[in-house]
């Protein structure tokens, strides 16, 4: 179980990584913590010719306070968020999410940006950062930069809108105030496994943000339309009906677990009429 031969270059900074990506004339791929790509390499399912290691790129490793938002460097690890070693734009929600990703040994290397670019539909950051309205900050060849909401950046299973030569450099996350509420719940058969169903709920009256997001599905996380999300939170629309509207082609029986996830997440977020839950419950 050894990977096929490849070259590996440690990038010193994001522009270095971008230059390498465009200039090495073979199939090159960015690697951060390598906790998802690593197994694929070892099993020879992925065979890039050149890996560009960004885990030590200084400009991808910090968090910048932009006033109303924080910009997380793409190579900040899950463990650094879990430990509170970097500021938390949400007053602790990120810490709780990070602490339940896979296992500690994985969290010590896995990165927030790597998880988003890998775009596994069941990944915790893919679902929760979509619900938190995060924005992907992207660098491209020749100093090009662009930004895109995560809701469109994640385009499908293992698929993002990154174009050849582009890298994700950061994730912008609005700061949340004390009156904002949040719930995230996932179903896993074993601690640390990928979720079979998950849901995240954001209720932020101050910022006018209300989002109900369903994840661990065969496509990017489903963001319920604003009207449906509010109706579900207010108890006017059954969760099952909202899911049926959002996913009309799916047999309703296949959405039972996702409905449970939404109900639990609503409870955690403290929505009236839903059983209260601990943030840590799963």
């Amino acid at each position: 179980m050894k990977p096929v031969a490849f070259d590996l270059t440690t990038a010193t900074a994001a522009p270095h990584a971008v230059a390498l990506l465009s200039n090495v004339d073979i199939e090159a791929k960015i690697i951060a913590g390598g906790q998802s790509l690593g197994p694929m390499l070892n099993l020879r399912l992925a065979r890039p010719g050149h890996l560009i290691d960004v885990t030590r790129a200084k400009d991808l490793r910090g968090v910048v306070d932009e006033g109303s938002a924080l910009l997380y460097g793409a190579a900040v690890t899950h463990a650094e968020i879990e430990d509170g070693a970097v500021p938390d734009a949400t007053g602790g929600w990120l810490q709780a999410i990070a602490s339940r990703i896979a296992y500690r040994a994985v969290r010590n290397r896995g990165t927030m940006g790597g998880s988003l670019v890998h775009a596994d539909p069941a990944a915790d950051w893919v679902v929760t950062l979509t619900a938190l309205g995060a924005v992907a900050v992207i660098a491209g060849p020749g100093g090009a930069a662009r930004e895109e909401p995560l809701s469109s950046f994640i385009a499908g299973p293992f698929t993002t809108t990154l174009k050849p030569g582009e890298i994700l450099t950061g994730i912008r996350l609005a700061k949340r105030t004390a009156d904002a509420r949040w719930g995230y719940w996932k179903f896993t058969r074993k601690v640390g496994e990928f979720a079979k169903a998950s849901a995240a709920v954001l209720i932020d009256p101050g910022a006018g943000d209300t989002r109900v997001v369903v994840g661990a599905i065969e496509q990017p996380p489903i963001i319920l339309p604003a009207g449906d999300a509010e109706a579900v939170i207010a108890g006017r629309l059954p969760i099952e009906e909202a899911l049926r509207r959002a996913l009309p082609h799916r047999p309703p029986a296949s959405l039972v677990l996702h409905a449970v996830a939404v109900r639990e997440a609503l409870g955690i977020a403290g929505a009236a009429g839903f059983p209260a839950q601990d943030q840590g419950a799963a």
Binding site: V4, A5, T9, L20, N23, I26, G49, H50
Partner: peptide, 13 residues
């Protein structure tokens, strides 16, 4: 790009 990486030692897959 540094010299070390401009001539990859691995052939394209």
């Amino acid at each position: 790009v540094t010299g070390a990486t401009s001539r990859p030692s691995v052939a394209a897959p």
